[in-house]
């Protein structure tokens, strides 16, 4: 990559402008700005949003200077990314209906999908180990009031 602008810096600037723009725009359109005596709920986020836009422009402008950093950026694979980001969500979705124990098992299994060294046996062992450990610590040790098996499973007679 030998482009004359530093792509990374331009992206960084754009990100600031987008976040700042979002908050500033939301503030003026949905919230009262208020008066000096009684500053409204929109005033502060609007002002900070504008500052962030300005900073974003500054970052972007500096990026136009030719940059020497030509090293390619390395990213995490899509599969890894999805597995890692999904696992807390999966826990959140399953913990109430299924209960603590099944939720931990599923979360651990989803997480292990992210690694490229994982094999099925190791994943299962890890999930089982984590489940036993967490149940021991949180349910028995700390007396967490969360049911081990949720209503969805209880219906099937667990």
């Amino acid at each position: 990559m030998s482009s004359r602008v530093n792509v990374k810096e331009v992206t960084a600037g754009l990100l600031c402008i987008v976040i700042g723009g979002f908050f500033a725009l939301q503030s003026v359109t949905t919230l009262p700005i208020g008066s000096a005596r009684q500053i409204g709920p929109g005033y502060f986020p609007f002002a900070v949003g504008l500052i962030l836009i300005a900073l974003g422009i500054l970052i972007g402008l500096r990026a136009v200077q030719p940059a020497e950093s030509s090293d390619r950026m390395q990213f995490v694979s899509v599969r890894t990314m999805l597995a890692i980001l999904a696992s807390p969500v999966v826990f959140g979705l399953s913990v109430r209906p299924l209960g603590l124990a099944p939720a931990i098992v599923i979360t651990a299994l989803v997480a292990t999908l992210a690694g490229n060294r994982a094999n099925v046996v190791q994943s299962l062992l890890l999930a089982a180990g984590l489940t036993i450990f967490c149940v021991a610590v949180f349910s028995y040790g700390l007396g967490l009031s969360l049911p081990l098996f949720g209503p969805l499973l209880a219906r099937f007679g667990v």
Partner: peptide
């Protein structure tokens, strides 16, 4: 390869014990 699933699980369970609120877990992601 064993550590990161463990971190994820402990974080999830630990966070959930604070507010019993699934939404917090979506924020994590």
């Amino acid at each position: 390869s064993m550590m990161f699933p463990a971190i994820l699980v402990f974080s999830a369970v630990g966070l959930y014990t604070i507010n019993s609120n699934s939404f917090d877990l979506y924020t994590v992601s």
